[in-house]
Amino acid sequence: MIHTRRIIPSAASGLALIAALPASAQEFITVASTTSTENSGLFGHILPMFQEETGIEVRVVSQGTGQALETGRRGDADVVCVHARAQEEAFVSDGYGVQRFNVMYNDFVIVGPNDDPAGLRDASDAASAMAAIAGAEASFASRGDDSGTHVAEMNLWTAAGVEPSGTWYLSTGSGMGATLNTAAQVPAYALTDRGTWLSFENRGDLEIVFEGDEVLFNTYGIILVNPERHSHVKAEQGQAFIDWIISDDGQAAISSFTVGGEQLFFPSAASQ
């Protein structure tokens, strides 16, 4: 029989249960990062090495660059690791971050249907490739989510002198993987980081149709959230992670990560 005197203790024990949950003795830091690093599997590869060396567990929350920086601004992460240089520098100069370090870069590639209706394989540089898509009004799937990749895409449109709009321009408002799934279905062109592309399996008809232009290089920075603004930030452990990832060991760990035999991320800590 359910009696009030039995419901009340069960409610209390339920509440006690949630109260007990966060108790985790292990030392950890929270890193807000981008979907591209998480989806590619890079963190899964390098974090166990760091944990073995220091005993610190790294919990990665993967979000779009904009959201990851917001997570840092609100103090919900100890470290942010993203790829949108101008926004990262603003993050530091506004006092939310301590200092920005170069970590690594990968590059963007333009993928598209293998019959390449806009003829991107013949383009001389990234800007003219984008102009060719717009000129042919060939379908293009955009992240449309203020992510680092989206920002890079918008910069390319500006360089090409194009204001993208029309039925051929599909703004998905979602992550890289979801955008690639859309592009594979349509099929449409899309700008993607190479890491996500290489580990992406549902490619359908898509292939890399343009790559190699220097403007497509995508630099990742890492920043400790400012403990002066958020006193709970685990500055010591967070800094230990940053120190490790830009050290020779960390950089070697990044180099050693491959997908299908291809290296995805290239160390760049030497060029601070």
């Binding site: 929270t30 979907t35 998480e38 989806n39 963190f43 899964g44 919990r59 990665v60 929350v61 993967s62 992550g175 890289m176 993987g177 979801a178 690639l180 799934n181 996500t196 580990s199 992406f200 399996e201 549902n202 490619r203």
Partner: peptide, 25 residues
Amino acid sequence: GGNIAGHTRTMTTAITLETARGQLG
């Protein structure tokens, strides 16, 4: 939850992630 591997990853967030990675299987 943040879909943190080994910590806050549930079946539904894992499905979302694997879909995003194109690992439909």
